[in-house]
Design a protein around this nucleic acid. Structure first.
Lengths: 201, 201
DNA sequence: TCTCCATGAGAACTTATAGAGAACCACGCC
DNA sequence: GGCGTGGTTCTCTATAAGTTCTCATGGAGA
């Protein structure tokens, strides 16, 4: 059980730690969540500590007072990740205004979706590597430029960018060392289009 | 025995919890099911609690909790994608034996994880493109070869492969057109390591 | 028609949570 | 040791949220 303000506090601390590498001061948290009283912030931090969201060395001053730990109480195991911001070379992490969570469900789940494990490197230039998981939305049509799972001659399945040209279907790998393949439309059956991909390290 | 409105209430609560990870307020439920009276909502919630569909801490704000009834929490269902098999150029889709589901939660959720949106193309050869979402596990140490979020001089954050060599720290971009950067260890603070990434098309 | 009962509105009440601010305590650095 | 910064512990107040009511309505069925 975690209250609204406690949640806001926790979010802020996570963001701050990610951004700076060390914990914020109570005053900074207060600023960050839009209140003025350090005492109030302390109350929230205390509550979060009690519930295991934070670790906390009492009294410690200047430097690392707060150690952040898992925010994953199993009862609150949600489909969302805190989205802390953008990272680019040469810049501090920037918060994305108005967005602080990313919903995996929204990203990947939906009617008619399934996953395929990608083998080989034919889509490497599109950032899809060997071993990645491709999320496919099942449908039997596609537009030029979409990446599709196509079945050729009812026999071979392949993941390629599709292009329609001059009454023919091109299946284009994203790999400079491989050639596009060209077929008559009736030989190519679309099984689905790529809607997402992910991998784990 | 559960009435129509009670079912609507329960469904709304389930949806809300799946989306937010915490329980709604009575007022939000009222809005959600299209009525105006918190009192009425309270009556439904009471009934659902009595029948074992919900657990309820009286008085607490957002004190509702889904009771796991036999069918389990559908967060389980919504967190998985059917995994149909492997796809490789030139082969039909092959089923992966003994594996027919892939759990997004297992892939991405865990203690201390957060997401960052990647800007720029410094990791393009590692299959991480501009706009991808990187899933980071917060920790302040890393091994050579891991991809980390590193803070340089408490100022710039960057996503790079880390390598320790001769008492120095190398941060290596995965982009042929960019050069590794070399620092003394005390200038580099590790904020987390990359554990996953995903994108949507 | 009359009763029963589920539904809904909303008022009145209680309690939880939020926030301010003050006073006090602890640490780290001259 | 004194000072400043920042953490801790209070009290007080306001508001938000949960709870408990009463009342009204409208449909189902005896």
């Amino acid at each position: 059980m975690i209250s609204d303000s406690q949640r806001k506090t926790l979010e802020f601390i996570r963001r701050y730690v990610a951004e700076h590498g060390y914990a914020p001061k109570l005053h900074e948290i207060a600023d960050g969540i839009g209140i003025k009283s350090r005492g109030v912030v302390h109350r929230y931090v205390q509550a979060l500590t009690d519930q295991g969201y934070l670790e906390h060395e009492p009294g410690k001053h200047r430097g690392l007072q707060l150690a952040d730990v898992d925010g994953a109480n199993e009862s609150e195991n949600t489909l969302t990740l805190p989205l802390l911001g953008k990272i680019a070379a040469g810049m501090p992490i920037q918060a994305i205004p108005g967005q602080d969570e990313i919903s995996l469900a929204e990203f990947f789940l939906g009617p008619g979706r399934f996953a395929l494990k990608v083998q080989g490197s034919s889509m490497i230039d599109a950032g899809i590597l060997d071993g990645d998981v491709a999320v496919i939305k099942q449908q039997n049509h596609a537009h030029s430029g979409e990446i599709v799972v196509a079945l050729i001659d009812n026999d071979e399945a392949t993941l390629k960018t599709i292009k329609y040209q001059a009454g023919l279907v091109q299946l284009i790998p994203a790999n400079q060392s491989m050639q596009p393949m060209i077929f008559e439309p009736q030989r190519v059956q679309i099984q689905g289009v790529l809607v997402g991909s992910f991998r784990r390290y």
